[in-house]
């Protein structure tokens, strides 16, 4: 009876039932590295907040608004980094030689982080724009492109949520992502041109000396939030892998349980009959 039951692992994190020593030590090292990244990111965030809000001086022209410099540009950088990684992973999935569902998971994980960072970029940019330009929003090329990018990738995530066969879904979303990505330069170019025909560029960075400590804080924020990005994506990627495993093995597991149940009943029945 037991011969019919497929091998199922009961590990909490879906670890293999009989882990190979090499794989196990590699996984262990990867987890350690990830933990270090996480701790470094956390320390970096605390440092950035402390330096950004208390230690650095207010700007001569922009006053306390300058403190947005320690979060807004690094968030925008994270967003573009995330979309770049997502694009590269999608391309790798579509390339027959490197076709692997792991690339699909990476593309999804990175895009998800990208959408979060884009939202923060838009919100912090808007907070800066209100006192500086006197309005929450201007139809600036960079802003408009970022907003469209946000919507494009919301669509991409919605497409990823559609249930279906993992291979089919991966191919569909990868093709969709590539086609959407080509749109980004076209959008940027068209909006730039649209604005240049009507009025002078609206964003002109305030001419102010960047204090030494301010520059260092800004640099720290870039490093910190890049680490945070890596940590987010690595965890989301691992979770996606577990979800895929659960999808694939969950049914087999349920079937095995049911069979075992049926087998036990049959045995009981036999015992009663004899």
């Amino acid at each position: 009876m037991n011969a019919l039951v497929p091998p199922v692992d009961h590990g909490l994190l879906g670890e293999s039932a009989a882990p190979h020593a090499v794989i196990s030590s590699r996984r262990h090292r990867a987890e350690l590295a990830l933990r270090i990244v996480g701790v470094a990111g956390l320390v970096g965030v605390v440092l950035t907040v402390w330096l950004g809000l208390w230690v650095t001086p207010p700007d001569a022209y922009m006053g306390n608004l300058v403190r947005l410099l320690y979060i807004h540009p690094s968030m925008a950088w994270d967003a573009f980094l995330a979309y770049g990684v997502s694009f590269a992973a999608s391309a790798c999935y579509l390339w027959p030689r490197t076709r692997d569902l792991r690339f699909d998971r990476l593309a999804g994980a990175s895009a998800e982080a990208g959408v979060v960072f884009t939202a923060i970029t838009l919100v912090t940019g808007s907070l800066w724009g209100r006192p500086t330009w006197g309005t929450w929003w201007v139809w600036d090329p960079l802003l408009t492109t970022t907003a469209l990018l946000f919507v494009l990738y919301l669509g991409y995530l919605a497409l990823r949520k559609v249930p279906g066969d993992p291979e089919v879904r991966a191919k569909r979303t990868a093709v969709g992502a590539l086609v959407a990505f080509i749109d980004v330069p076209i959008v940027y170019f068209s909006v730039t041109w649209w604005k240049s025909l009507h009025q002078a560029p609206t964003i002109s960075p305030g001419k102010s000396d960047v204090h030494g400590l301010m520059a260092w804080t800004m640099l720290l924020s870039f490093v910190t939030f890049s680490l945070v990005y890596v940590w987010f994506v690595a965890h989301r990627y691992r979770l996606a892998g577990l979800q895929a495993r659960e999808e694939a093995e969950g049914l087999a597991y349920a079937l095995a349980e049911r069979r075992a149940e049926g087998g036990a009943k049959a045995v009981e029945k036999n015992e009663v009959l004899t």
Binding site: L148, V151, Y156, A158, D183, I186, V187
Partner: peptide, 13 residues
Amino acid sequence: TLLPLLFFPVVAP
């Protein structure tokens, strides 16, 4: 519901 979300941002230009 999915189609307009995918389609409209791309054709914005």
